[in-house]
Amino acid sequence: MSAERTLGTSRTLPYTPGEIYGAFASPELLAAWWGPDGFSNTFEIFEFKTGGRWKFVMHSPDGKDYANENIFSELVKDAKVVIHHICQPLFTLTVELTPVSDGTHLSWQQMFDDVQTAQAVKQIVGPANEQNIDRLTQVLSKVASPQ
């Protein structure tokens, strides 16, 4: 049943796990890449620690604002980031970073609390997650050294 609630993707990026993890840990970097193409972010609370809160507003290109509130459920330096989204839609995002010969294999798994929500947002969230990783790569290309 969890497979029906999970939307995921993976990709190998030419950066170290530490550089990718750092793009989550830095509010300036995270604000620059988080979200689909054209979105920007205003962070209200950013406590990058296990149990810490992350509250922000995503601004869409058409001027709409989307309030978001999360808890960092698990943080393993240079290896794993687990974010629990505590406002609608409810989900847990697990990002795992595995070193490989040409950089880091990034696994991005978003598990929604119910099947109905996962299926309802699948057509939007799938491409949005790919854009999110594209934006992460673009930010890292400016601040990190490719492997």
Rank of each mutant, 00 (worst) to 15 (best):
K77T: 10
S26W: 01
Q88E: 15
I133R: 04
E44W: 00
Y21A: 11
P146N: 07
V125A: 06
F43Q: 10
S101Y: 13
N68K: 07
D113H: 05
M1D: 07
G52M: 13
I124L: 02
H59I: 09
A32Q: 12
S10G: 11
R135M: 08
A120L: 07
D102P: 01
E69F: 06
V139C: 07
P27M: 01
L90Y: 13
T94P: 08
L29W: 08
C87R: 05
Y21M: 13
F72H: 10
Q116L: 14
P146F: 07
T42F: 00
T98P: 07
G63V: 08
G18A: 14
S40F: 02
A32S: 13
N41G: 03
D62S: 08
D78Y: 00
Q119G: 09
I71G: 12
T50A: 13
S145N: 14
M111C: 12
L13S: 05
I20P: 04
I133K: 04
T98S: 14
A128K: 00
S145V: 13
K49D: 15
D114A: 12
G8D: 05
D37N: 05
W54L: 13
K49L: 14
S40I: 03
L93I: 11
L30W: 10
R53I: 04
V139H: 03
V115C: 03
S101A: 15
R5A: 11
F39M: 03
V121H: 04
F39P: 01
H59W: 04
T137E: 15
E19L: 02
S26G: 01
T92W: 06
G103C: 10
P146S: 07
M111P: 05
A31M: 04
Q116R: 14
K64F: 08
A144F: 10
V139A: 09
A32K: 12
H105N: 13
E19C: 02
P36D: 00
G126T: 00
F112Y: 15
T50N: 14
A25P: 03
E44T: 02
W108S: 11
D37F: 01
T12G: 10
E44A: 03
D113W: 04
D102K: 07
E96S: 15
I86K: 08
S2K: 06
Q110G: 05
A120W: 03
S141L: 09
H84E: 12
S60Y: 03
Q116C: 09
A79M: 09
F48A: 11
G51H: 04
P89L: 10
L97T: 09
S141D: 14
F24I: 01
Q119C: 09
W54D: 09
Y15D: 11
S107K: 12
V125P: 00
P17M: 13
Q116G: 14
V76Y: 06
P17F: 06
T6H: 03
K142V: 15
L75Q: 07
L30F: 13
V57S: 08
D113F: 04
L7K: 02
P61F: 06
V115S: 03
A31P: 02
I86Q: 08
M1N: 06
L136N: 10
I124T: 03
W108F: 15
V125F: 02
T94M: 07
